[in-house]
Protein backbone atom coordinates (compact mmCIF):
# COMPACT_ATOMS: atom_id res chain seq x y z
CA UNK A 1 0.00 0.00 0.00
CA UNK A 2 2.92 2.34 0.66
CA UNK A 3 4.04 2.09 -2.98
CA UNK A 4 0.46 2.57 -4.23
CA UNK A 5 0.01 5.70 -2.14
CA UNK A 6 3.37 6.92 -3.33
CA UNK A 7 2.29 6.37 -6.93
CA UNK A 8 -0.91 8.30 -6.24
CA UNK A 9 1.02 11.29 -4.88
CA UNK A 10 3.33 11.27 -7.89
CA UNK A 11 0.44 11.07 -10.33
CA UNK A 12 -1.57 13.81 -8.65
CA UNK A 13 1.35 16.21 -8.35
CA UNK A 14 2.50 15.57 -11.92
CA UNK A 15 -0.90 16.20 -13.43
CA UNK A 16 -2.02 19.24 -11.42
CA UNK A 17 0.34 21.92 -10.18
CA UNK A 18 -2.20 23.04 -7.58
CA UNK A 19 -1.49 19.85 -5.63
CA UNK A 20 1.03 20.30 -2.84
CA UNK A 21 2.23 18.09 0.01
CA UNK A 22 3.02 19.28 3.52
CA UNK A 23 3.74 17.70 6.86
CA UNK A 24 6.40 16.71 9.35
CA UNK A 25 9.33 14.93 7.69
CA UNK A 26 7.46 14.30 4.44
CA UNK A 27 10.05 15.79 2.10
CA UNK A 28 13.66 14.93 2.85
CA UNK A 29 12.99 11.50 4.42
CA UNK A 30 9.85 10.84 2.37
CA UNK A 31 7.76 10.48 5.50
CA UNK A 32 8.30 8.18 8.47
CA UNK A 33 6.55 5.42 6.48
CA UNK A 34 8.18 6.50 3.17
CA UNK A 35 4.76 7.11 1.61
CA UNK A 36 6.01 10.36 0.10
CA UNK A 37 9.47 9.24 -1.00
CA UNK A 38 10.89 10.83 -4.13
CA UNK A 39 8.41 13.69 -4.26
CA UNK A 40 10.87 16.34 -3.07
CA UNK A 41 13.38 15.51 -5.81
CA UNK A 42 10.73 15.57 -8.48
CA UNK A 43 8.57 18.52 -7.42
CA UNK A 44 10.88 20.71 -5.35
CA UNK A 45 10.69 22.12 -1.84
CA UNK A 46 8.01 24.71 -2.60
CA UNK A 47 5.48 21.94 -3.30
CA UNK A 48 6.84 19.29 -0.96
CA UNK A 49 7.18 20.97 2.39
CA UNK A 50 8.84 19.80 5.59
CA UNK A 51 6.82 21.93 7.99
CA UNK A 52 7.58 23.05 11.52
CA UNK A 53 6.37 20.54 14.10
CA UNK A 54 2.90 21.91 14.77
CA UNK A 55 -0.27 20.17 13.64
CA UNK A 56 -2.67 23.10 14.07
CA UNK A 57 -0.28 25.19 12.00
CA UNK A 58 -0.12 22.49 9.34
CA UNK A 59 -3.87 22.12 8.94
CA UNK A 60 -4.52 25.85 9.42
CA UNK A 61 -2.06 26.85 6.73
CA UNK A 62 -3.38 24.11 4.44
CA UNK A 63 -6.81 25.73 4.77
CA UNK A 64 -5.30 29.08 3.79
CA UNK A 65 -3.59 27.54 0.76
CA UNK A 66 -6.90 26.05 -0.31
CA UNK A 67 -8.52 29.45 0.07
CA UNK A 68 -6.05 30.72 -2.54
CA UNK A 69 -6.86 27.85 -4.90
CA UNK A 70 -4.23 25.22 -4.13
CA UNK A 71 -5.07 21.59 -3.34
CA UNK A 72 -2.92 20.72 -0.33
CA UNK A 73 -2.37 17.23 1.02
CA UNK A 74 -1.44 17.48 4.69
CA UNK A 75 0.11 14.50 6.39
CA UNK A 76 -0.35 13.98 10.11
CA UNK A 77 2.54 11.77 11.13
CA UNK A 78 0.61 9.47 13.48
CA UNK A 79 -3.05 9.12 14.49
CA UNK A 80 -2.68 10.43 18.04
CA UNK A 81 -0.80 13.51 16.81
CA UNK A 82 -3.88 14.90 15.07
CA UNK A 83 -5.52 16.26 18.21
CA UNK A 84 -3.79 19.68 18.23
CA UNK A 85 -5.31 20.18 14.76
CA UNK A 86 -8.78 19.13 15.86
CA UNK A 87 -10.05 22.69 16.22
CA UNK A 88 -8.81 23.67 12.75
CA UNK A 89 -10.48 20.59 11.27
CA UNK A 90 -13.79 20.88 13.11
CA UNK A 91 -14.27 24.62 13.25
CA UNK A 92 -12.73 25.69 9.97
CA UNK A 93 -12.06 22.93 7.42
CA UNK A 94 -15.45 21.33 7.99
CA UNK A 95 -17.32 24.64 7.80
CA UNK A 96 -15.58 26.58 5.06
CA UNK A 97 -18.11 25.63 2.37
CA UNK A 98 -20.99 26.30 4.76
CA UNK A 99 -19.60 29.71 5.74
CA UNK A 100 -19.01 30.80 2.12
CA UNK A 101 -22.33 29.84 0.53
CA UNK A 102 -20.71 26.71 -0.91
CA UNK A 103 -18.27 28.79 -2.95
CA UNK A 104 -15.05 28.15 -1.05
CA UNK A 105 -14.84 24.67 0.43
CA UNK A 106 -11.59 23.77 2.20
CA UNK A 107 -10.30 21.47 -0.52
CA UNK A 108 -7.72 19.67 1.54
CA UNK A 109 -6.83 16.04 2.09
CA UNK A 110 -5.66 15.17 5.59
CA UNK A 111 -3.78 11.89 5.53
CA UNK A 112 -3.55 10.08 8.84
CA UNK A 113 -1.73 6.75 9.34
CA UNK A 114 -3.85 5.07 12.00
CA UNK A 115 -4.51 1.99 14.08
CA UNK A 116 -2.47 -0.66 15.80
CA UNK A 117 -0.83 -3.92 14.95
CA UNK A 118 2.65 -2.60 14.22
CA UNK A 119 4.09 -2.66 17.75
CA UNK A 120 4.33 1.11 17.80
CA UNK A 121 5.23 3.18 20.90
CA UNK A 122 2.53 4.61 23.13
CA UNK A 123 0.18 7.13 21.41
CA UNK A 124 1.06 5.89 17.94
CA UNK A 125 -1.88 3.52 17.40
CA UNK A 126 -5.15 5.43 17.92
CA UNK A 127 -8.29 4.99 15.79
CA UNK A 128 -9.86 8.48 15.85
CA UNK A 129 -12.06 8.00 12.75
CA UNK A 130 -15.38 8.22 14.61
CA UNK A 131 -14.42 11.63 16.00
CA UNK A 132 -14.22 12.92 12.43
CA UNK A 133 -17.21 11.00 11.08
CA UNK A 134 -19.27 12.80 13.72
CA UNK A 135 -18.35 16.23 12.32
CA UNK A 136 -20.66 17.55 9.59
CA UNK A 137 -18.78 18.92 6.60
CA UNK A 138 -16.03 16.33 6.54
CA UNK A 139 -15.70 13.24 4.41
CA UNK A 140 -13.91 10.35 6.08
CA UNK A 141 -12.51 7.42 4.12
CA UNK A 142 -10.19 4.50 4.73
CA UNK A 143 -8.82 2.19 2.05
CA UNK A 144 -8.02 -1.43 2.87
CA UNK A 145 -5.75 -2.32 -0.03
CA UNK A 146 -3.17 -0.86 -2.43
CA UNK A 147 -5.31 -0.27 -5.54
CA UNK A 148 -8.08 1.32 -3.52
CA UNK A 149 -5.54 3.41 -1.65
CA UNK A 150 -4.20 4.94 -4.86
CA UNK A 151 -7.61 5.45 -6.46
CA UNK A 152 -9.21 6.85 -3.32
CA UNK A 153 -6.29 9.20 -2.72
CA UNK A 154 -6.72 10.67 -6.20
CA UNK A 155 -10.47 10.90 -5.73
CA UNK A 156 -9.95 12.62 -2.38
CA UNK A 157 -7.62 15.19 -3.95
CA UNK A 158 -10.18 15.91 -6.69
CA UNK A 159 -13.03 16.15 -4.21
CA UNK A 160 -13.76 19.80 -3.37
CA UNK A 161 -14.63 19.02 0.25
CA UNK A 162 -12.16 18.28 3.05
CA UNK A 163 -11.36 14.57 3.22
CA UNK A 164 -9.91 12.78 6.23
CA UNK A 165 -7.92 10.01 4.61
CA UNK A 166 -7.24 7.27 7.15
CA UNK A 167 -4.40 4.95 6.18
CA UNK A 168 -4.26 1.67 8.12
CA UNK A 169 -0.66 1.30 9.25
CA UNK A 170 -0.85 -2.46 9.55
CA UNK A 171 -1.77 -2.73 5.85
CA UNK A 172 1.00 -0.38 4.66
CA UNK A 173 3.37 -3.26 4.01
CA UNK A 174 1.20 -6.32 4.74
CA UNK A 175 -1.07 -6.41 1.70
CA UNK A 176 0.32 -6.63 -1.83
CA UNK A 177 -1.60 -6.46 -5.09
CA UNK A 178 -1.08 -5.22 -8.63
CA UNK A 179 -2.08 -1.58 -9.07
CA UNK A 180 -2.89 -0.59 -12.67
CA UNK A 181 -0.65 2.31 -13.71
CA UNK A 182 -3.58 4.13 -15.28
CA UNK A 183 -5.88 5.64 -12.63
CA UNK A 184 -9.64 5.23 -13.08
CA UNK A 185 -10.23 8.94 -13.12
CA UNK A 186 -9.13 11.94 -15.09
CA UNK A 187 -6.87 13.84 -12.70
CA UNK A 188 -5.65 16.45 -15.14
CA UNK A 189 -9.18 17.64 -15.88
CA UNK A 190 -10.34 17.28 -12.32
CA UNK A 191 -13.21 14.97 -13.12
CA UNK A 192 -14.23 11.38 -13.49
CA UNK A 193 -15.87 9.05 -11.07
CA UNK A 194 -14.27 10.75 -8.07
CA UNK A 195 -17.40 10.98 -5.99
CA UNK A 196 -18.34 7.37 -6.64
CA UNK A 197 -14.87 6.06 -5.91
CA UNK A 198 -14.88 7.89 -2.63
CA UNK A 199 -18.35 7.09 -1.36
CA UNK A 200 -19.14 3.49 -2.31
CA UNK A 201 -18.65 0.38 -0.21
CA UNK A 202 -17.22 -2.72 -1.88
CA UNK A 203 -17.86 -6.41 -1.42
CA UNK A 204 -14.40 -7.72 -0.54
CA UNK A 205 -15.57 -11.33 -0.28
CA UNK A 206 -18.86 -12.70 -1.59
CA UNK A 207 -21.27 -14.63 0.60
CA UNK A 208 -24.96 -14.70 1.59
CA UNK A 209 -25.05 -16.23 5.08
CA UNK A 210 -23.53 -13.45 7.18
CA UNK A 211 -22.46 -9.89 6.41
CA UNK A 212 -19.20 -8.92 8.10
CA UNK A 213 -19.17 -5.14 7.75
CA UNK A 214 -15.79 -3.54 8.32
CA UNK A 215 -13.19 -1.16 6.92
CA UNK A 216 -9.49 -0.39 6.77
CA UNK A 217 -7.21 -2.41 9.03
CA UNK A 218 -9.70 -5.17 9.83
CA UNK A 219 -10.70 -6.01 6.25
CA UNK A 220 -7.97 -8.63 5.59
CA UNK A 221 -8.57 -10.40 8.92
CA UNK A 222 -12.32 -10.35 8.30
CA UNK A 223 -11.73 -12.13 4.99
CA UNK A 224 -9.54 -14.63 6.79
CA UNK A 225 -12.23 -15.16 9.40
CA UNK A 226 -14.82 -15.64 6.65
CA UNK A 227 -12.62 -18.28 5.02
CA UNK A 228 -12.32 -20.06 8.36
CA UNK A 229 -16.10 -19.95 8.84
CA UNK A 230 -16.47 -21.47 5.41
CA UNK A 231 -14.08 -24.29 6.21
CA UNK A 232 -15.33 -24.98 9.72
CA UNK A 233 -19.06 -24.34 9.46
CA UNK A 234 -19.86 -24.22 5.77
CA UNK A 235 -20.98 -20.63 6.27
CA UNK A 236 -20.32 -18.18 3.45
CA UNK A 237 -19.79 -14.77 4.97
CA UNK A 238 -19.79 -11.68 2.82
CA UNK A 239 -17.19 -9.10 3.79
CA UNK A 240 -18.37 -5.58 3.07
CA UNK A 241 -15.50 -3.07 3.03
CA UNK A 242 -17.14 0.28 3.83
CA UNK A 243 -14.28 2.38 2.36
CA UNK A 244 -16.23 5.55 3.15
CA UNK A 245 -17.03 6.15 6.83
CA UNK A 246 -18.78 9.41 6.08
CA UNK A 247 -20.97 9.40 4.21
CA UNK A 248 -21.81 5.75 4.70
CA UNK A 249 -22.99 3.72 1.72
CA UNK A 250 -26.36 3.02 3.32
CA UNK A 251 -27.75 1.00 0.40
CA UNK A 252 -24.77 -1.34 0.42
CA UNK A 253 -25.05 -1.81 4.19
CA UNK A 254 -28.76 -2.52 4.28
CA UNK A 255 -28.53 -4.54 1.05
CA UNK A 256 -25.90 -6.80 2.58
CA UNK A 257 -27.88 -7.16 5.81
CA UNK A 258 -31.00 -8.08 3.86
CA UNK A 259 -29.16 -10.51 1.57
CA UNK A 260 -27.52 -12.30 4.50
CA UNK A 261 -30.13 -11.86 7.24
CA UNK A 262 -27.30 -11.61 9.75
CA UNK A 263 -24.62 -8.95 10.24
CA UNK A 264 -21.52 -8.41 12.32
CA UNK A 265 -19.59 -5.13 12.44
CA UNK A 266 -15.84 -5.15 13.04
CA UNK A 267 -13.49 -2.28 13.81
CA UNK A 268 -10.42 -1.49 15.90
CA UNK A 269 -11.76 1.69 17.45
CA UNK A 270 -13.57 1.57 20.81
CA UNK A 271 -17.17 0.38 20.56
CA UNK A 272 -18.91 3.33 22.24
CA UNK A 273 -20.36 5.67 19.59
CA UNK A 274 -18.11 4.06 17.00
CA UNK A 275 -18.84 3.48 13.31
CA UNK A 276 -20.28 0.09 14.27
CA UNK A 277 -22.97 1.72 16.40
CA UNK A 278 -24.14 3.75 13.41
CA UNK A 279 -24.05 0.80 11.03
CA UNK A 280 -25.99 -1.36 13.48
CA UNK A 281 -28.55 1.36 14.03
CA UNK A 282 -29.08 1.92 10.31
CA UNK A 283 -29.69 -1.79 9.77
CA UNK A 284 -32.11 -2.08 12.67
CA UNK A 285 -34.01 1.05 11.65
CA UNK A 286 -34.37 0.06 8.03
CA UNK A 287 -34.39 -3.69 7.56
CA UNK A 288 -35.04 -5.20 10.96
CA UNK A 289 -37.65 -7.58 9.60
CA UNK A 290 -35.06 -9.04 7.20
CA UNK A 291 -32.84 -10.03 10.12
CA UNK A 292 -32.57 -13.44 11.73
CA UNK A 293 -30.52 -12.05 14.62
CA UNK A 294 -29.51 -8.69 16.05
CA UNK A 295 -26.42 -7.03 14.64
CA UNK A 296 -23.39 -7.70 16.83
CA UNK A 297 -20.05 -5.93 17.09
CA UNK A 298 -16.42 -6.96 17.45
CA UNK A 299 -14.41 -3.85 18.28
CA UNK A 300 -11.65 -2.40 20.36
CA UNK A 301 -12.52 -2.03 24.02
CA UNK A 302 -13.47 1.18 25.79
CA UNK A 303 -9.97 1.69 27.12
CA UNK A 304 -6.98 3.71 25.91
CA UNK A 305 -5.05 1.94 23.20
CA UNK A 306 -2.69 -0.24 25.28
CA UNK A 307 1.06 -0.44 25.32
CA UNK A 308 2.02 -2.72 22.46
CA UNK A 309 2.81 -5.73 24.64
CA UNK A 310 -0.96 -6.05 25.05
CA UNK A 311 -2.16 -4.75 21.71
CA UNK A 312 -3.13 -8.20 20.45
CA UNK A 313 -5.44 -8.51 23.46
CA UNK A 314 -7.09 -5.24 22.48
CA UNK A 315 -7.32 -5.61 18.73
CA UNK A 316 -9.97 -7.58 16.89
CA UNK A 317 -8.48 -10.84 15.59
CA UNK A 318 -9.56 -13.71 13.35
CA UNK A 319 -10.50 -15.66 16.46
CA UNK A 320 -12.55 -12.82 17.94
CA UNK A 321 -14.31 -12.26 14.61
CA UNK A 322 -15.11 -15.97 14.30
CA UNK A 323 -16.40 -15.95 17.88
CA UNK A 324 -18.45 -12.82 17.16
CA UNK A 325 -19.85 -14.46 14.03
CA UNK A 326 -20.89 -17.44 16.13
CA UNK A 327 -22.87 -15.11 18.44
CA UNK A 328 -24.82 -13.83 15.44
CA UNK A 329 -25.17 -17.22 13.72
CA UNK A 330 -26.23 -19.09 16.87
CA UNK A 331 -28.48 -16.41 18.31
Amino acid sequence: MVEALNLGHHQAMASDDRVLLMGEDVAKTGGVFRVTAGLLDRFGEERVIDTPLAEAGIIGSAIGMSLYGLLPIAEIQFDAFVYPAFEQIVVHAARYAWRTKGQVPASIVIRIPYGGGVRAPEMHSDCPEALFAHVPGLKVVSPAGPADARDMLLAAILDPDPVIFMEPKRIYRAVREEVPQEPPLDIANGNGAGGEILSRARIARPGDDLAIITYGPTVPMSIEAADQLSRERGIEARVLDLRSLYPLDVAAITGSATACGRALVVHEAPRMAGIGAEVSSLIHERVMLDLEAPVMRVTGFEVPFPQFANEDDYLPSVDRIVAGAARVLDW
Partner: peptide, 15 residues
Protein backbone atom coordinates in the same frame (compact mmCIF):
# COMPACT_ATOMS: atom_id res chain seq x y z
CA UNK B 1 -7.44 30.22 14.49
CA UNK B 2 -7.58 32.34 11.33
CA UNK B 3 -3.95 33.39 11.66
CA UNK B 4 -2.58 30.13 10.17
CA UNK B 5 -5.05 30.59 7.29
CA UNK B 6 -3.49 33.96 6.49
CA UNK B 7 -0.08 32.29 6.54
CA UNK B 8 -1.18 29.48 4.23
CA UNK B 9 -2.78 31.90 1.83
CA UNK B 10 0.36 34.04 1.82
CA UNK B 11 2.41 30.91 1.15
CA UNK B 12 0.19 30.08 -1.84
CA UNK B 13 0.51 33.61 -3.21
CA UNK B 14 4.28 33.44 -2.86
CA UNK B 15 4.31 30.05 -4.60
Amino acid sequence: THLPHAVGLAYAAKL
